[in-house]
Design a protein around this nucleic acid. Structure first.
Lengths: 200, 200
DNA sequence: GGGTTAATGTAGCGATCGACACAGAAAGGA
DNA sequence: TCCTTTCTGTGTCGATCGCTACATTAACCC
């Protein structure tokens, strides 16, 4: 298999720990020293395995989106109706943002507000990620509209941006320390608004 | 008046420029070198006038809240009804977050997500500021409830947190580059939801 | 003008940032 | 066994971080 000296750490586990650390402290406030400390490896090993801080973050964010972070959006797409999907998206994100023992809030939202513009590759990654999430919302609502489901508005684009704002608001409040029940009451209001606007 | 050598810069103007810079780049990504550059003064003058980066930020944030940043909340308190107040709060914040030639988003929201926990005085300031804003929302809704105005929910506390989340969502989206018309469509939906939930 | 007080410009402090040079260590292939 | 290849630990690079010592300059009071 490998020709040279074998790697002495589990790359996936290291990536997972890096992801948790970026999630906890944001992008800029997570230093290479912090990472090598938590990962238990030297900085040359980190750079050999991941290239740079920026590319390590992108790999960690990929892992976030492919795992926990992507689950609420998977639930959105899989739900039988758009209403169920949006509710699953919001409640799933509340659970994600307030999980016991885990970092609070959203890794991507936090990074978006704490990444210096000079790190262009990270900024570009975050922009693409945001576009993808908006597109996921829009397409789910679009298919619902095509299926004749009742929606709170005919403007699917505006709806997608509206529910994206709900998610971001929940993420910020979770980071500020809002409790899970408090965030769920906010989701209750958002879904009550869906119903009140849809039945006309 | 002054005993020693007079200050060679306008303290208020310097504070205003510092506020704009913190608003544009967040707390952590704004360095003392950036500040002395934009303010046109040396670092000893900055420290003599403002004490430290943390206390300069708090002074700049005070200026933000007393000026532009506080206007939407002043409109909330001054409006004849809670509905008008919330709408003025949201639309005022959209205008603030997308003002041409000015920084995008909210100075406080951005700082909340980009301030290292080690800067305890700034963290404490931001927490208190957030509590105050939530309290402003809650008391306005409370007086409306006492006056018998129709509200989207009987749970005033949940309502306050819900509209706080709306503001934060708008702030994040503005920072991500959302246009003013797009954010206003989101506010349209939020206010349509108010009406649909209030008329029962 | 002298003396006092305060703000300024230069220059640099120790610490930390992201990233890497270098040599030693551990594997496979011959 | 020796060579090649790859990873690991030590040490450190130049740059930047927030911050300040020091001498100088410019105002006031007398």
């Amino acid at each position: 298999m490998g020709r040279g000296r074998p790697r002495q750490f589990d790359r996936d586990e290291a990536l997972d720990r890096a992801m948790r650390l970026f999630w906890t402290r944001g992008y800029q406030d997570t230093s290479i020293a912090d990472l090598t400390d938590v990962l238990g490896i030297g900085s040359p090993s980190l750079y050999a395995a991941f290239g740079s801080k920026a590319s390590l973050f992108r790999a960690a964010a990929d892992r976030y989106e492919a795992g926990e972070g992507g689950r609420p959006f998977a639930a959105l797409a899989a739900a039988p109706t758009a209403r169920d999907g949006v509710e699953a998206l919001l409640r799933g994100n509340v659970a994600l943002f307030t999980k016991r023992g885990g970092p609070r809030g959203c890794l991507l939202t936090r990074a978006t507000l704490s990444c210096p513009p000079s790190d262009t590759t990270v900024v570009a990654y975050l922009q693409r990620s945001r576009r993808d999430r908006l597109a996921a919302l829009r397409t789910r609502l679009q298919t619902a509209a095509a299926a004749g489901e009742p929606l709170p508005s005919d403007d699917v684009d505006a709806l997608a941006q509206y529910y994206d704002a709900q998610v971001q608001g929940l993420a910020v409040r979770a980071l500020e320390g809002a409790t899970r029940p408090a965030l769920l009451r906010t989701v209750d209001l958002t879904m009550a608004a869906w119903d009140a606007l849809s039945t006309r």
